[in-house]
Amino acid sequence: MNPTATSIKLTNCAKTFADGTQALKPLNLTVKAGETIVLLGPSGCGKTTLLRIIAGLEATDQGGEIYFNQQNMTSIAIEKRNIGMVFQSYALFPNMSVAQNIVYGLKIRKLKPQAIKRRLDEMLEMMQIEALAHRRIDQLSGGQRQRVALARAIAVRPNLLLLDEPLTALDASLRDRLRSEISELLQKLGITSIYVTHDQSEAMALADRIVVMDKGRIVQIGSPYDIYHRPKNEFVANFVGNVNHHPNVFDANYLTLFRPEDVEIVEPTKGDFEAKIISVLFLGDKSRLTLDCGFKKSIYVDTTLRQNFKTGMKISMHVEAERLIKLKTTDNGPATVKES
């Protein structure tokens, strides 16, 4: 871990906009030094607002406080917070070359020319963009812009790295590659990072802990493993992956769910329940079956069995007891329960 890494503490932070909409309900959040936190949620859940409050681009409502280490930063302007930020649109300066973009923060900090040069070379090498140093920004591809934006944010040795949906503007294959590069980079730097995304696979791949948000609230905080396998309510279970309602376990106090990949297809009549295949989506490494079991909602099953499933076939299925996700219905609120 980076010895200079900063811990973050938010207490009672909320955001009400001028038009009266409350984008963020009062919330507390602690980020350990060197940790990578992903704020995950659907659009409008308040994740970007939370990030902007931490950055200092938005002020928290009266009563909220922000600490970097033990220092109260609540009323400190963004330019004095020593952060690095990567924007969704990269926000690279079009009037400057790649190199000038990267050293912008260093020049503002009035570093000596040799120190600036050294750091620039370091950054160019780290991001593998040596060849682009003298290019103009409009001569770069999306992926290259992303690298420059990262280099620029990291060059100033920030206390905290903030990333606002940095991969959203890229195409899928590039996104996958950059995702693992960013993951490696964050590991290597050991810098405290907060990453905003609506993409659960991005969150899983990058996070030490995921903060799932919905409607301006934090719904659950936990490791990717916990969030996926021990979701706190149906919203989280649904948001981080697909989930089925168990067709023949009924309990007024519990909602019983399971994930498509946790279903075993067994000999006819030997399973817990049977259902008819409505559609088959063959994905190569697995097949995704949509099944009708006489229940309102369809059931989805992912299977790696090498069997040529056909629409109309009836199959018998079994889910191991420890694979079931049991949720207290009170945690879901009455509406969610009735819906199923």
């Binding site: 302007a77 330019e79 300066f93 009037n95 912008y104 900090r109």
Partner: peptide
């Protein structure tokens, strides 16, 4: 957004105005 990113890199209002806004 350009101004916000300059601010995140430590630039004060006048630095932003002269190095980012005016040139662009």
């Amino acid at each position: 957004e350009l101004e916000e990113s300059a601010a995140s890199l430590g630039a004060s209002f006048w630095q932003r105005f002269f190095t980012i806004i005016l040139p662009n």
